[in-house]
Computed example of a mutant assay.
Amino acid sequence: MTTNRQASPQGQRDRVRVWDPAVRLFHWGLVAAFAVAYVTVDSSRSVHQWAGYTALGLIAFRLIWGVIGTRHARFSDFVPGPRRLLDYMRRAVKGREPRYLGHNPAAAIMILFLLAATGAIGISGWLLTTDWGWGSRTIEQIHETSVNVTLVAIGLHVAAAIYESLHHRENLIRSMITGHKRR
């Protein structure tokens, strides 16, 4: 006789679905769009631009899904207030931060930052294609600086996911592929 937990898609009793397909498609779609835009900056202007437009579309979707989406997708579920963020950071410095089923407070801030920074890249890139922004050195500088800052943030994001995976003995990268985490 099996229970509902044993009949889960993973067939494992201790797993729970956290990341819905929309969140996972957004995440990996944004990774792909950013990577394509980055590697095609000098080789294919149209591919570069369409990758940027795709990123902007994904961000628009994520902002909507952050309000109406499933529990762990909603900003109200994971965006911390200052007190909760500071408490988490104090614990993290000591290596005693709690495990979160969804995003931890530091990850929430990184998500907001990455959304804003990638949005700045996309909007500044789009402005460079308009009559108003074409040839503007200021907008070009904003675009390039936003890319460089975002690359650093991506590195921190990946490093934090690896740290958190090791610290809490849970493969967060796999969970962003499968949607499941342990209870």
Results as ranks from 00 to 15, higher is better:
2 T>L: 11
3 T>F: 12
6 Q>E: 11
7 A>I: 10
11 G>I: 05
11 G>P: 09
14 D>F: 15
14 D>P: 10
19 W>H: 01
22 A>K: 06
24 R>F: 10
25 L>R: 08
26 F>R: 00
26 F>A: 07
31 V>N: 02
32 A>E: 00
33 A>M: 04
38 Y>E: 03
39 V>F: 06
40 T>Y: 06
43 S>I: 10
44 S>K: 11
46 S>Q: 11
46 S>F: 06
47 V>I: 15
50 W>Y: 11
51 A>P: 03
52 G>W: 06
53 Y>K: 04
53 Y>N: 02
56 L>H: 03
59 I>D: 00
62 R>Y: 09
64 I>Y: 10
64 I>S: 02
65 W>L: 08
67 V>Y: 01
68 I>E: 01
69 G>Q: 03
70 T>A: 09
73 A>C: 03
80 P>S: 07
84 R>P: 05
86 L>H: 05
87 D>F: 09
89 M>F: 14
90 R>V: 15
93 V>E: 06
94 K>T: 13
95 G>R: 10
96 R>L: 13
100 Y>F: 14
100 Y>M: 10
101 L>F: 02
101 L>V: 09
104 N>H: 03
105 P>W: 01
105 P>N: 03
111 I>L: 07
114 L>D: 01
119 G>C: 06
119 G>H: 05
126 W>Y: 14
129 T>W: 13
129 T>E: 12
130 T>L: 12
131 D>E: 15
132 W>G: 11
134 W>E: 13
139 I>A: 12
139 I>D: 13
142 I>K: 10
144 E>P: 04
146 S>F: 05
148 N>V: 02
148 N>T: 07
149 V>G: 01
152 V>R: 00
156 L>H: 04
159 A>H: 03
160 A>E: 05
160 A>S: 12
161 A>Q: 10
162 I>W: 13
162 I>R: 06
168 H>W: 07
168 H>T: 11
173 I>C: 00
173 I>H: 00
182 R>K: 12
183 R>F: 15
